[in-house]
């Protein structure tokens, strides 16, 4: 499965499996993990909420456009939703391409565009309070 929005814990295996191939000699993965220090200093967990149908469509569009821009590249993205503890993976991205330079470029482009465009929101739940993370930084 190249694109997924999942409530279960993420694993790199499926996204890697969706992009590798005999003509692609470079494979780059990115894993986004829940951090202890967010906008609030003592994050205990994050709650991710998605507009699921649109998020899946936007992630498909992002993967498609990167594959068009970078010849021979394949991109897979899985995003978690629900309640995540510090240290858990919120997103995994895999990009494979004929050579390493294109694979790094494709992976970076996928996570950057996801952060800007996917209708997925996170709420930090900390010991001292809770906050939706909006705007961006």
């Amino acid at each position: 499965m190249r694109i997924a929005v999942l409530e279960s814990p993420l694993d790199l295996g499926p996204v890697v499996g969706a992009v590798v191939g005999i003509d692609r000699g470079g494979l780059v993965t990115f894993t986004g993990l829940v951090r202890r220090k967010g906008r609030i200093p003592d994050v205990v967990r994050l709650e991710y909420e998605a507009y699921r149908t649109m998020a899946e469509k936007v992630l498909e569009q992002i993967a498609d456009e990167i594959e068009r821009e970078i010849g021979g590249a394949r991109v897979a993205i899985h995003h978690r939703v629900g309640s995540l503890a510090v240290g858990e993976a919120a997103v995994v991205v895999a990009a494979a391409a004929p050579h390493r330079a294109e694979a790094f470029t494709a992976c970076r482009a996928a996570i950057d565009r996801l952060k800007q465009r996917a209708p997925i929101w996170k709420k930090e739940i900390g010991e001292s309070g809770a906050a939706w993370i909006e705007d961006c930084c």
């Binding site: 952060k115 209708p119 929101w121 909006e134 961006c136």
Partner: peptide
């Protein structure tokens, strides 16, 4: 019709 608040963005 979905109202889409600003997404989390995230520091790069």
């Amino acid at each position: 019709l979905a109202l889409i608040p600003p997404v989390s963005g995230g520091a790069s």
